[in-house]
Amino acid sequence: MSSKILTFTLNGETIRVVVEPTDMLADVLRDKLNLIGVKKGCGQGECGACTVIMNGDAVTSCIIPALKAEGAVVETIEGIGGPGKYHPLQESFMDLGAIQCGFCTPGMIMSAKALLDKNEQPTREEIREAISGNICRCTGYVKIEKAVSTAAEKIREGK
C-alpha cells in the first residue's frame, strides 16, 4: 500500500499528514489529528454525526476518502469556537437545551453552520433541509430547530 502525504487546510491551519488510500476523512481527523468532536455513528453516511464542512459544504466525513480532501478547506466543530469564545450556534444549543446525549450535536452544528454561512435568514424549511441528514435519537429536533434560528438571529444582530 502506498502511504501518501495529504495537505489540506483544517480549521484555518495548513496540515500535512500521512494517510493510507483506505483511510476515510473521519478516521484521519479523529485518530491522526485527535479531533474527536467528529463523531462516528453509522460509518455509512446515513446518520450525519461525522459531518464536517468541506469547501463550504456539509459532508459526511466517514465516507469521504481522506485523499479526496487534498487541497481542500475543512472545518470541524473544534475550529468554530470553544470555551472563551463560542460560536453563536454553540451558544444557542446550550442556552436552549438543544442537547440531550450530545452525540449528534457536533454534526448537527456543522450542518447548521454550513447553512448559516450561506444564508443568515433561513426559513424553517431551509433549516429542516439543512439538518435532515443528521439523526438525533433522543429526538430533540424541535429545540435544535429553534437553536439554529436563534443563532441566525444572533449572527444578524452581531453585524
Binding site: 453516511g45 459532508v59 459526511t60 433541509e129 441528514g133
Partner: peptide
C-alpha cells in the same frame, strides 16, 4: 436523494 450531505458529495 439521500440527505443534504450525500447530495453535496
Amino acid at each position: 436523494v439521500g440527505s443534504l450531505q450525500i447530495r453535496n458529495t
